[in-house]
Write a protein that binds this DNA or RNA. Structure first.
Lengths: 189, 189
DNA sequence: GTCTATACCACGATAGAC
DNA sequence: GTCTATCGTGGTATAGAC
């Protein structure tokens, strides 16, 4: 496709604006202005604003889904699986930062098939994570807390990592992984 | 003021809609329709859409600020202060759920003085929390992890509690506090 | 205090010249 | 592939009758 590069450019600029102001607060005219063109010209490369959002979100959602599949295929303990999931979240935060903010903040503005597909992927991901935690409690590797509290606490932290990673001086990823695993698994006291 | 009750009703309905769809995706016509009135009639009670957002957010922001002040005045250890902060977050989640979603999702759509005041309160809150963690590390009550990782992990969890609390069957608050303190402080393994 | 009517503007998107 | 011009819709907000 001839417009491949230009389209990527548009998606990139849109992702920055969506991250700053949110999907609904960004107009096609805003995106065009940031690219030095007119809003009408955008439609030679994309079908509309919704496509921009769906492109950004679905790429990242697929990464999470395939990461979870890889983890589930391993012959490893629940704790090891959770450690891998933490590392996957960190890797995605670093390597797919463009779409991550859109996924976290604006997924509810997806429409029709995209929305349905996203919600299904998200629920499946959470169910798999929950099962791993339950297996860990059953085998007494994990303390007998309410699994929902554990799931929620880990996912909250991992899902908002992107907000914080950019703000600070971009810690070395391997140090971040070590500290994050330690804090989430072993607590702080 | 004669319109006090009606104004509260409007703020309440707006908070529900903002929570569902986000500030920018909710129109004055939406809010009016949910109240069985016309959009124009809203302006007899409020000055505009911005006032609705600011009312919701500022009330909750004040709760956090005054909660932090109370904690800082105590003669207690850093760990005890953190436990109190966790409990404050849970109490606010339960008692101020209306404004909490707006504060978390839509604060960046505040304007002018409200935005400045909010950002100042938020930064001050985070700085105080960070200092408590650092004091705990210095006194060796808290493990020597990067304080920023600890701060971020706790705040991420506590700030998104509202998303999760409503979804589940509204656990008993005291049980929630116990499990949450345990998970955040002592980890899961 | 709510209504109808409307002003005024920005939105997403399209048509067609170049 | 970008432009100008424009369409239809829906946004916040106001004026004035009831």
């Amino acid at each position: 496709m001839k417009t491949g590069t230009r389209k990527q450019e548009i998606v990139h600029v849109a992702s920055q604006l969506f991250k700053e102001k949110g999907y609904n607060a960004v107009s096609m005219r805003d995106i065009a202005k940031a690219l030095g063109m007119k809003a009408a010209s955008l439609y030679n490369h994309i079908s509309g604003k919704q496509e921009l959002l769906a492109t950004l979100i679905m790429e990242v959602a697929y990464e999470f889904t395939s990461g979870m599949e890889t983890v589930l295929q391993q012959q490893s303990s629940p704790i090891q699986k959770i450690e891998q999931l933490i590392e996957i979240h960190i890797d995605i935060t670093v390597n797919f930062s463009e779409g991550l903010a859109a996924l976290n903040n604006d997924w509810m503005h997806l429409e029709n098939e995209d929305l349905k597909a996203f919600v299904a992927m998200r629920e499946s991901y959470e169910a798999n994570f929950r099962d791993i935690i339950k297996a860990g409690i059953a085998s007494e590797e994990i303390k007998p807390r309410h699994p929902e509290v554990i799931l929620f606490s880990m996912l909250s932290t991992l899902r908002t990592l992107h907000l914080w990673y950019e703000k600070r001086g971009k810690l070395d990823v391997n140090i971040l992984k070590k500290d994050m695993v330690a804090v989430l698994l072993k607590g702080i006291v």
